[in-house]
Amino acid sequence: MALLDVKDLGISFGGLKAVEHVNLSIEKGELFGLIGPNGAGKTTIFNLLTGVYQPTCGTILLNGNKLEGKSPAQICRSGVARTFQNIRLFKKMTVLENVMVAFHNQVTYSLLDGMLHTKRYRAAEEEVRKQAAKILEVFHLSEEKDVLAVNLPYGKQRKLEIARALATNPQLLLLDEPAAGMNPNETKELMDTIQLVRKQYGITILLIEHDMKLVSGICEKLLVLNFGTELASGIPEEVLKNPEVVTAYLGE
């Protein structure tokens, strides 16, 4: 069974069909690329998968469990985490705190524990701190752990977004243009980190990108979107040879 199984997904905003008839099947451990020109509906698909929008039709199954109809928080708990194209960090919280928020559902002490600073509270907080620090280390953010997120340089903000998403302990990680605005060196480094994370944590990744070269280099499978519908899907070599894809990207 595929980890994520999307069938006939669609949504329309007041008559405008933003996404239509999208099918997606991602196996456990895969690095899957979602590509397409601007406005093709890539981010809309992320919003559908994470419960920000509710689909008008279609089904989304994660390990055979329905995701549609659930709230973003519930979806996060069932194992899907995401980053945002337009960075959405908790700006006035420190880097460490940003990651700690993501552990929200992995610690369970009660409000009263927190008020009385019980043993349970202290043990859980220490554990969270340790775990969070570990994740920051992977992304080379340890030195900045006490810096406010808003004061991080742009590239590191992007990394922090991924670190934070990873901290929710997801099975499936959705990355929305993680390399946007980065220079080639930074991009290369980021892609290496993503590969590393994937191996280390054994997670499945769905990646949005509109730079085809970049995506075809690291993804095992691709889905190309255009005008909200599926244009082609499969392994990169085949997809990129597809004449329709070439037309969509380069024009007639």
């Binding site: 973003p72 985490a81 959405r88 998403a165």
Partner: peptide
């Protein structure tokens, strides 16, 4: 700080 991100991190807003 960011309601949408908070929700995406599993916080029941």
């Amino acid at each position: 700080e960011n309601t949408i991100a908070a929700e995406a991190m599993g916080v029941q807003v």
